[in-house]
Design a protein around this nucleic acid. Structure first.
Ligand SMILES: [Zn+2]
Ligand SMILES: [Zn+2]
Ligand SMILES: [Zn+2]
Ligand SMILES: [Zn+2]
Lengths: 153, 153
DNA sequence: TCGAAAGGGTTACATTATAACATTACTTGC
DNA sequence: GCAAGTAATGTTATAATGTAACCCTTTCGA
């Protein structure tokens, strides 16, 4: 993962957005949920559920269901995505702005960039339409190397 | 899963292709590997590792590593793909013809169609290029409903 | 204020996957 | 053919990931 100039800003923004979304949706952004989201946002990589659990530590007498329930809530509300190819979770960098989010995942530094460009969504949609397939959810995860890691090799 | 007119043909073709590929690559298409591939091809849905294990039954005194090793071999040689969003495996319908394969996954009948159209691959590649990201492997899994299932609803 | 619904604690367990080491089978050079 | 090396498989144990079920507490709306 590469340096993020002022990562506190990323975290604060994410939490503030989450507050707002939960407010709007009339769902409860409880302490545990907030804390898990904060941990997920600790950096721009993906976080494993059991790592989050460990980092929650004694707080909240956390056990697996504690974390999985929080993650489920966060996913349902678009605040977190699961990266299926890694069994890991990332904070969403623009919650609820897209139906599906796509990911560039650097396997050297573990950074995950979200990028949900229209052309890709369109190409996917057209491919499905051609086969009369009705998509409900698209998983698109691109594993490779980010720019900085290519340079540093 | 919907009827496949003559599914034995699918299976035979898959096994014959596998034979040929292994031959060409100078790798050993052992009994276990062949049997697991056959089981994966039992239908056009995805198969879970532990289901395969069960279906292997007493044969080969199969235990988890037996199946996972076979699956690993089959994946390495492009004969099988893992569907990450399902933790399940499907036979490849056109081994080694693409760098990455894309999937339409019907959550009603469990059928998995492989479709690796150029426009999607290009859109993905361009999105990555724009961010100077060097892709190595793309996971694209589209969950939804197939044509027949939409009709039957 | 009371009852329903949502959230969370706790235990136990299910599912998915791998490490490590022993044994067997195949290959290759002699 | 045979020895030695390599690849494949057997076997045991365990790691990693995820969920069911049950009960109690908190919140919220009537
Ligand atoms: Zn997102
Ligand atoms: Zn990187
Ligand atoms: Zn394929
Ligand atoms: Zn279907």
């Amino acid at each position: 993962m590469h340096l993020c100039h002022e990562h506190e800003v990323c975290v604060e923004t994410a939490l503030a957005t989450a507050d707002q979304i939960c407010e709007e949706r009339g769902v409860r952004f409880t302490d545990i949920r907030r804390r898990v989201l904060e941990l997920v946002w600790e950096n721009h990589g993906s976080a494993k559920a059991y790592d989050l659990l460990e980092r929650l530590g004694g707080e909240y007498s956390a056990k697996p269901p504690t974390v999985y329930r929080a993650l489920e809530f966060l996913q349902e509300n678009g605040l977190v995505h699961k990266i299926n190819s890694l069994n890991a979770y990332v904070g969403c960098s623009h919650p609820l702005q897209h139906k599906d989010c796509f990911f560039l995942i650097c396997s050297r530094c573990n950074e995950v960039q979200e990028c949900c460009t229209e052309p890709v969504a369109n190409a996917v949609w057209q491919m499905a339409a051609k086969r009369h397939f009705k998509p409900r959810h698209t998983t698109l995860e691109i594993e490779g190397q980010c720019q900085q890691c290519q340079v540093q090799n």
